[in-house]
Write a protein that binds this DNA or RNA. Structure first.
Lengths: 200, 200
DNA sequence: GTCTATAGCGGGATAGAC
DNA sequence: GTCTATCCCGCTATAGAC
């Protein structure tokens, strides 16, 4: 028997814990992990910093939980996009389009790793390992889609699917980074070009 | 008459000032602008924090000076690469190769903007404006090279040169970001793919 | 131009009352 | 579970002696 119970339609490990995760996830779409504080979180939730420490003793704990939380979220989003798609090429189009909507409006829900990656070396080993695993999983998914789509003649690119996937993810990450400085049009240009270069 | 004089072969606005800039530039290749402190700088120089404030009153001043300093540096590097190249396609190859050497070993000397961009919204307006100008200049240079190279039949890509340039720079930026988490092979894969996708 | 000393802030984290 | 109060740290920045 699990440590949680169903209450109505939501898990009751702790409603507050879930609420904190959701609020933190929202903050992460605007700031990096290192850039938001327990104080920011507390203000949005209308409680005190110390209360957050009760649910997540250290910020590292919060980071790990957040990565898990987002792994589920983006997994569900990918499943939805893949389910709707008529084939691998169409799936790639949907993914890129969703990236554009989501990165511009709410941040990186498709591949949450970006907001952590920014902090690079400053991350703890625990968080970095978790992040790496998540990123590689996503990379592999995209690489497989690219290979399938090329096999079906739906897209065209040279070289290894894995390198192509790496380049596309890196470009999305870099464009998201550049957005506050160069504006949204820069980001749109990158997404447009990624689709065009595949022949989508 | 300029505010500086030549002494031997180097400028004497202030040797120390120049030394600080160079040390800061080196730090920026490993950390972001927000991530290094006057304390880090002071330790490397063997002086105290307060002495650095004497040369750069605020960190913002240092940031602006740093962007100017690097604009010169990367300008010289571009000039060198363009001078050695046999044509626009060869120039692009040399630039990408240099990015790979330099980003992996010493940081982003080719396009210094990356280390600032990481800090995104946290930057002051002054620094952000300066950064934007530098980034756009570099973007334009790459776009022109791409256009010329395509005109000469040396490279192939679809769409606007400006979008292609934006995508390439974003990919390099994103790959540099990911390097501490995913390792050097990820970065190499991106550079490899960027060249391959152009047909270089 | 460099130093010591310190102010002021905001970050993460803890102790203990309620 | 949440609160108040507090600690310790590192950061930018300033004042004033040398």
């Amino acid at each position: 028997m699990p440590a949680y119970q169903l209450v109505g339609s939501c898990l009751a490990v702790s409603d507050r814990k879930q609420q904190i995760l959701e609020t933190a996830a929202e903050l992460l779409t605007h700031k990096s992990f290192a850039a938001f504080s327990y104080q920011d979180l507390a203000e949005r939730l209308g409680i005190r910093k110390a209360s957050i420490h009760h649910h997540f003793a250290t910020k590292d704990d919060l980071g790990v939980a957040l990565l898990g939380f987002w792994r589920e979220r983006s997994g569900a989003m990918m499943a939805e996009l893949l389910g709707d798609a008529t084939g691998p090429g169409d799936a790639l189009t949907r993914i890129l389009d969703r990236c554009e909507e989501v990165l511009l409006d709410m941040g990186n829900q498709v591949c949450p790793a970006g907001a952590f990656e920014v902090d690079g070396q400053a991350l703890s080993d625990r968080v970095r390992e978790e992040l790496k695993a998540e990123k590689l999983t996503f990379l592999e998914q995209i690489a497989e889609l690219l290979q399938a789509a090329r096999g079906a003649g739906e897209v065209a690119f040279l070289g290894e699917p894995r390198d192509q996937a790496a380049t596309m993810l890196a470009a999305l990450q870099g464009a998201r980074q550049a957005e506050p400085v160069l504006g949204r049009e820069f980001f749109r240009g990158v997404v447009r070009q990624l689709k065009r270069s595949l022949g989508l």
